[in-house]
Amino acid sequence: MQQNQNNSIIQKPLSELIADQLKWKIWHESIQFGERLLETDLAESFDVSRSTIREALKILESEELVVSQARKGTYVADFTDQDADEMIELRALIEAHAFSQSIRHLDHKDVKKLEDIVAEMKVKAEEEDWNALFDLDMQFHSYVVGLCGNSRIIKIYDSLQVQIRTFLMHLDKYYSSPQSFYAEHKQLLEALVSKNAHTVNRRVKEHIAYVETKLLGQQSDKELKEV
Protein backbone atom coordinates (compact mmCIF):
# COMPACT_ATOMS: atom_id res chain seq x y z
CA MET A 1 0.00 0.00 0.00
CA GLN A 2 2.81 2.37 0.92
CA GLN A 3 4.55 1.53 -2.37
CA ASN A 4 1.47 2.62 -4.34
CA GLN A 5 1.32 5.90 -2.45
CA ASN A 6 5.00 6.54 -3.17
CA ASN A 7 4.53 5.76 -6.86
CA SER A 8 1.62 8.19 -7.10
CA ILE A 9 3.77 10.91 -5.52
CA ILE A 10 6.67 10.21 -7.86
CA GLN A 11 4.37 10.30 -10.90
CA LYS A 12 2.93 13.71 -9.98
CA PRO A 13 4.01 16.48 -12.38
CA LEU A 14 6.50 18.95 -10.91
CA SER A 15 3.98 21.78 -11.18
CA GLU A 16 1.52 19.85 -8.98
CA LEU A 17 4.19 19.12 -6.38
CA ILE A 18 5.05 22.82 -6.24
CA ALA A 19 1.36 23.75 -6.03
CA ASP A 20 1.06 21.37 -3.05
CA GLN A 21 4.05 23.02 -1.39
CA LEU A 22 2.54 26.48 -1.90
CA LYS A 23 -0.77 25.31 -0.39
CA TRP A 24 1.11 24.00 2.65
CA LYS A 25 2.90 27.35 3.03
CA ILE A 26 -0.39 29.25 2.83
CA TRP A 27 -2.15 26.95 5.29
CA HIS A 28 0.78 27.19 7.71
CA GLU A 29 0.92 30.97 7.20
CA SER A 30 4.43 31.05 5.76
CA ILE A 31 2.68 32.85 2.90
CA GLN A 32 -0.02 35.31 3.96
CA PHE A 33 -3.46 36.02 2.50
CA GLY A 34 -3.25 38.90 0.05
CA GLU A 35 0.49 38.39 -0.49
CA ARG A 36 1.81 38.82 -4.02
CA LEU A 37 3.44 35.75 -5.56
CA LEU A 38 6.31 36.63 -7.89
CA GLU A 39 7.15 34.03 -10.54
CA THR A 40 10.84 34.98 -10.55
CA ASP A 41 11.22 34.64 -6.77
CA LEU A 42 9.31 31.34 -6.68
CA ALA A 43 11.29 29.91 -9.61
CA GLU A 44 14.52 30.73 -7.78
CA SER A 45 13.21 29.37 -4.47
CA PHE A 46 12.11 26.02 -5.98
CA ASP A 47 14.96 25.95 -8.52
CA VAL A 48 12.61 25.41 -11.46
CA SER A 49 11.63 27.32 -14.59
CA ARG A 50 9.15 30.19 -14.54
CA SER A 51 6.87 28.16 -16.84
CA THR A 52 6.66 25.43 -14.16
CA ILE A 53 5.77 28.07 -11.56
CA ARG A 54 3.18 29.49 -13.94
CA GLU A 55 1.57 26.04 -14.25
CA ALA A 56 1.56 25.63 -10.46
CA LEU A 57 -0.13 29.01 -10.01
CA LYS A 58 -2.77 28.08 -12.58
CA ILE A 59 -3.57 25.00 -10.48
CA LEU A 60 -3.99 27.18 -7.38
CA GLU A 61 -6.08 29.67 -9.35
CA SER A 62 -8.43 26.89 -10.50
CA GLU A 63 -8.82 25.93 -6.82
CA GLU A 64 -9.53 29.60 -5.96
CA LEU A 65 -6.55 29.81 -3.64
CA VAL A 66 -4.87 32.54 -5.69
CA VAL A 67 -6.19 35.27 -8.00
CA SER A 68 -4.49 36.69 -11.06
CA GLN A 69 -5.00 40.39 -11.81
CA ALA A 70 -4.19 41.82 -15.23
CA ARG A 71 -1.05 43.98 -15.18
CA LYS A 72 -0.86 43.61 -11.39
CA GLY A 73 0.25 40.03 -10.82
CA THR A 74 -0.86 36.99 -8.84
CA TYR A 75 -1.95 37.20 -5.21
CA VAL A 76 -3.06 34.77 -2.52
CA ALA A 77 -6.84 35.12 -2.34
CA ASP A 78 -8.28 36.77 0.75
CA PHE A 79 -10.71 34.67 2.79
CA THR A 80 -13.67 36.82 3.85
CA ASP A 81 -16.47 36.37 6.39
CA GLN A 82 -18.80 35.74 3.44
CA ASP A 83 -16.51 32.94 2.23
CA ALA A 84 -16.64 31.40 5.70
CA ASP A 85 -20.42 31.73 5.89
CA GLU A 86 -20.86 30.07 2.49
CA MET A 87 -18.48 27.25 3.43
CA ILE A 88 -20.40 26.63 6.66
CA GLU A 89 -23.68 26.43 4.75
CA LEU A 90 -22.22 24.09 2.13
CA ARG A 91 -20.61 21.79 4.68
CA ALA A 92 -23.86 21.59 6.65
CA LEU A 93 -25.79 20.57 3.53
CA ILE A 94 -23.32 17.94 2.38
CA GLU A 95 -22.02 16.51 5.65
CA ALA A 96 -25.31 16.22 7.55
CA HIS A 97 -26.67 14.04 4.76
CA ALA A 98 -23.46 12.13 4.04
CA PHE A 99 -22.74 11.33 7.69
CA SER A 100 -26.29 10.04 8.21
CA GLN A 101 -25.97 7.79 5.16
CA SER A 102 -22.50 6.56 6.09
CA ILE A 103 -23.64 4.72 9.22
CA ARG A 104 -25.22 2.04 7.00
CA HIS A 105 -21.76 1.19 5.62
CA LEU A 106 -19.70 1.71 8.78
CA ASP A 107 -17.92 -1.49 9.88
CA HIS A 108 -15.30 -2.40 12.52
CA LYS A 109 -12.43 -1.50 10.19
CA ASP A 110 -13.89 1.96 9.61
CA VAL A 111 -14.47 2.54 13.31
CA LYS A 112 -10.86 1.57 14.02
CA LYS A 113 -9.62 4.03 11.37
CA LEU A 114 -11.71 6.87 12.84
CA GLU A 115 -10.64 5.96 16.39
CA ASP A 116 -7.01 6.23 15.30
CA ILE A 117 -7.63 9.68 13.80
CA VAL A 118 -9.40 10.90 16.95
CA ALA A 119 -6.64 9.45 19.16
CA GLU A 120 -4.08 11.41 17.13
CA MET A 121 -6.26 14.52 17.50
CA LYS A 122 -6.06 14.13 21.27
CA VAL A 123 -2.26 14.12 21.08
CA LYS A 124 -2.17 17.18 18.82
CA ALA A 125 -4.70 18.98 21.02
CA GLU A 126 -2.41 18.48 24.01
CA GLU A 127 0.46 19.87 21.92
CA GLU A 128 -1.81 22.77 20.84
CA ASP A 129 -0.91 22.05 17.23
CA TRP A 130 -3.82 23.59 15.34
CA ASN A 131 -2.44 22.87 11.87
CA ALA A 132 -2.12 19.16 12.62
CA LEU A 133 -5.64 19.20 14.09
CA PHE A 134 -7.02 20.75 10.92
CA ASP A 135 -5.25 18.14 8.76
CA LEU A 136 -6.75 15.40 10.95
CA ASP A 137 -10.17 17.06 10.74
CA MET A 138 -9.93 16.78 6.95
CA GLN A 139 -9.02 13.10 7.24
CA PHE A 140 -11.93 12.40 9.60
CA HIS A 141 -14.63 14.19 7.64
CA SER A 142 -13.41 13.01 4.23
CA TYR A 143 -13.28 9.41 5.42
CA VAL A 144 -16.85 9.50 6.70
CA VAL A 145 -18.20 11.26 3.60
CA GLY A 146 -16.42 8.59 1.55
CA LEU A 147 -18.61 5.96 3.21
CA CYS A 148 -21.93 7.56 2.24
CA GLY A 149 -22.37 5.43 -0.89
CA ASN A 150 -23.13 8.35 -3.22
CA SER A 151 -20.28 8.74 -5.70
CA ARG A 152 -21.44 12.19 -6.84
CA ILE A 153 -21.53 13.59 -3.31
CA ILE A 154 -18.06 12.15 -2.70
CA LYS A 155 -16.77 13.71 -5.93
CA ILE A 156 -18.22 17.13 -5.07
CA TYR A 157 -16.79 16.96 -1.55
CA ASP A 158 -13.36 15.96 -2.88
CA SER A 159 -13.41 18.96 -5.23
CA LEU A 160 -13.92 21.24 -2.20
CA GLN A 161 -10.97 19.92 -0.18
CA VAL A 162 -8.66 22.88 -0.82
CA GLN A 163 -11.35 25.44 0.06
CA ILE A 164 -12.41 23.51 3.16
CA ARG A 165 -8.79 23.27 4.38
CA THR A 166 -8.39 27.01 3.79
CA PHE A 167 -11.57 27.60 5.80
CA LEU A 168 -10.34 25.39 8.65
CA MET A 169 -7.21 27.45 9.26
CA HIS A 170 -9.46 30.25 10.55
CA LEU A 171 -11.23 28.12 13.16
CA ASP A 172 -8.72 28.39 15.99
CA LYS A 173 -10.10 31.83 16.89
CA TYR A 174 -13.60 30.39 17.38
CA TYR A 175 -12.65 27.61 19.81
CA SER A 176 -11.77 28.15 23.47
CA SER A 177 -9.02 25.53 23.21
CA PRO A 178 -7.70 22.73 20.96
CA GLN A 179 -9.21 20.30 23.46
CA SER A 180 -12.73 21.54 22.70
CA PHE A 181 -12.09 20.96 18.98
CA TYR A 182 -10.90 17.42 19.74
CA ALA A 183 -13.89 16.81 22.05
CA GLU A 184 -16.34 17.62 19.25
CA HIS A 185 -14.78 14.96 17.03
CA LYS A 186 -14.86 12.44 19.85
CA GLN A 187 -18.60 13.13 20.16
CA LEU A 188 -19.04 12.80 16.40
CA LEU A 189 -17.33 9.41 16.50
CA GLU A 190 -19.52 8.26 19.40
CA ALA A 191 -22.60 9.31 17.43
CA LEU A 192 -21.42 7.38 14.36
CA VAL A 193 -20.73 4.25 16.42
CA SER A 194 -24.24 4.47 17.89
CA LYS A 195 -25.58 4.24 14.30
CA ASN A 196 -28.49 6.45 15.31
CA ALA A 197 -29.22 8.63 12.27
CA HIS A 198 -30.96 11.32 14.34
CA THR A 199 -28.02 11.58 16.77
CA VAL A 200 -25.49 11.69 13.93
CA ASN A 201 -27.42 14.40 12.08
CA ARG A 202 -27.71 16.48 15.25
CA ARG A 203 -24.03 16.13 16.16
CA VAL A 204 -22.88 17.13 12.67
CA LYS A 205 -25.13 20.18 12.60
CA GLU A 206 -24.05 21.21 16.11
CA HIS A 207 -20.39 20.82 15.13
CA ILE A 208 -20.81 23.06 12.08
CA ALA A 209 -23.33 25.46 13.66
CA TYR A 210 -20.95 26.12 16.57
CA VAL A 211 -18.61 27.98 14.25
CA GLU A 212 -21.51 29.71 12.49
CA THR A 213 -22.80 31.01 15.84
CA LYS A 214 -19.35 32.30 16.78
CA LEU A 215 -18.91 33.88 13.35
CA LEU A 216 -22.28 35.63 13.47
CA GLY A 217 -21.59 36.70 17.05
CA GLN A 218 -18.34 38.32 16.02
CA GLN A 219 -20.05 40.05 13.10
CA SER A 220 -22.75 41.41 15.43
CA ASP A 221 -20.14 42.74 17.86
CA LYS A 222 -18.34 44.42 15.00
CA GLU A 223 -21.56 46.03 13.75
CA LEU A 224 -22.39 47.33 17.22
CA LYS A 225 -18.96 48.93 17.52
CA GLU A 226 -19.44 50.66 14.16
CA VAL A 227 -22.78 52.19 15.23
Rank of each mutant, 00 (worst) to 15 (best):
S102T: 06
T213I: 07
L216Q: 12
V145E: 06
A191V: 07
E206G: 03
V204W: 02
A132T: 15
Q101I: 04
S194H: 04
E206H: 01
E212M: 13
S177Y: 12
I208V: 08
D129F: 15
H141E: 06
I103G: 01
K155L: 06
L160I: 07
N196G: 00
K113A: 14
A183N: 03
R165V: 13
K195M: 09
M121I: 10
F167N: 02
L171D: 08
K112Q: 11
E128P: 15
A132L: 14
D129K: 13
M169C: 05
V211L: 01
H185A: 04
R104K: 15
A132F: 09
I208E: 00
A132G: 12
S102D: 08
Q187R: 01
V204K: 08
E212I: 10
Q139W: 13
G149E: 05
F99R: 05
N196W: 09
I117Y: 09
A125L: 14
A119S: 14
Y143F: 10
D110F: 08
W130C: 02
F140A: 07
E127G: 13
D110A: 12
T213F: 12
E120S: 15
V200W: 02
D135R: 11
A197Y: 10
I156L: 12
S177I: 05
F167C: 01
Q163S: 11
K173Y: 10
V145Y: 10
F167T: 00
V204N: 01
R104M: 12
N201F: 11
A183V: 07
I156S: 07
E126T: 08
A132N: 15
Q187T: 05
T199R: 09
K122C: 11
K122M: 13
F167S: 00
K214C: 14
L216H: 08
V211K: 05
H108V: 11
L114V: 04
D137G: 03
C148D: 01
E120Q: 15
K113C: 05
Q161Y: 12
H185D: 02
G149S: 09
V118R: 05
P178Y: 07
R203C: 02
D135M: 12
Q101R: 15
D172R: 07
T213G: 03
H198N: 07
H185S: 01
I153A: 15
L188C: 02
E190H: 05
K214N: 01
G217A: 01
T166C: 09
L192T: 05
Q179N: 13
H141A: 01
S142M: 08
I156M: 12
Q163F: 08
D107Q: 14
D172L: 06
S180N: 08
S159I: 14
A125I: 13
F181C: 00
I153G: 02
V200M: 03
H185E: 03
Q139C: 09
H170V: 12
V144P: 02
H198E: 02
V118N: 02
Q187I: 04
F181D: 04
S151L: 14
D129M: 13
